[in-house]
Computed example of a mutant assay.
Amino acid sequence: MTGPLLKIEHLEVRYGDLIGVSDVSLEVPEGSIVALLGSNGGGKTTVLNAIAGLIPAYSGSILFFGQEIGGQSAFAVVRKGLALSPEGWRLFVQQSVENNLKLGATPLGDKARAAALLERVYEIFPQLAERRSQRAGTMSGGERQMLAVGRALMSDPRLLMLDEPSLGLAPAVVEKMYETFERLHKAGLTILLAEQSIELALEVSDFATVLQVGRSVLSGTAAALANDPQVQRAYLGTG
């Protein structure tokens, strides 16, 4: 494959007459972690949902492995190797941990792989293995975040999208989650990470794109964005 694993050009998403994002472009090289940064309401979740096929793009292109996936269903997108761990987890709270995980394997073409993927998730998140029979709705916030990520991993993605994985979690839990993300990355997984926690995201990422009011206004290496005081003040509200 030549070019980035994921490439978005001039993405626009509308909710009726309301514009969710107006002009977003970004690239995710294979084997990288890319941070999608911006304040609450800047459009990060809208971009991830459009990539995942949960909402339609109004205009622009979304290329995955060089093929247009904009307009395809969420089921079709995840079967291509792209999975989303959504903000707020969106678990089946009355179902057990294991049933939630197994639902994540639904898109697999080869269902025989589900058992091995389940054991892999349990190795990554031992707490889920200990609570495999527990109802998802009775778990802590940190455990629910683990379960949401584990469910996404059950489709064996090439690209994992994480929407606000630190939101509402205690600092110690966030640190542990990010250590897990780095291990997954070192094992070969490409990650697109939407975060309000800017310093945390830039620390683990290779590249970053900044959104402001539904537009991508800046892209570059994470190190460059983290070390430029003017960028921090103008676009990220820090520094």
Score class of each variant (00 low, 15 high):
187 A>V: 02
93 V>R: 14
121 V>Y: 07
141 G>Y: 04
220 G>I: 03
166 S>I: 02
66 G>T: 14
114 A>L: 00
193 L>E: 10
105 A>N: 04
93 V>S: 14
198 I>W: 06
138 T>R: 03
92 F>N: 03
59 S>C: 12
38 G>F: 00
56 P>G: 09
234 A>H: 07
149 V>I: 15
198 I>C: 05
11 L>H: 08
3 G>Q: 10
22 S>W: 15
65 F>V: 13
44 K>P: 02
62 I>L: 12
59 S>Q: 13
142 G>H: 05
199 E>P: 00
159 L>Q: 10
107 P>W: 03
100 N>D: 06
174 V>Y: 04
201 A>D: 05
209 T>S: 10
147 L>C: 04
2 T>F: 01
61 S>T: 14
236 L>Q: 07
64 F>C: 14
203 E>Y: 01
52 A>M: 10
7 K>I: 03
199 E>F: 04
48 L>I: 00
219 S>W: 01
75 F>D: 09
82 L>T: 02
18 L>H: 13
104 G>R: 00
199 E>S: 05
215 R>F: 12
111 K>A: 15
186 K>H: 14
11 L>G: 08
195 E>T: 03
208 A>C: 03
136 A>I: 06
165 P>E: 15
141 G>Q: 07
33 I>G: 12
149 V>Y: 07
223 A>C: 04
202 L>W: 01
114 A>F: 00
188 G>T: 08
6 L>P: 02
210 V>R: 03
142 G>E: 07
69 I>R: 08
238 T>M: 12
208 A>G: 01
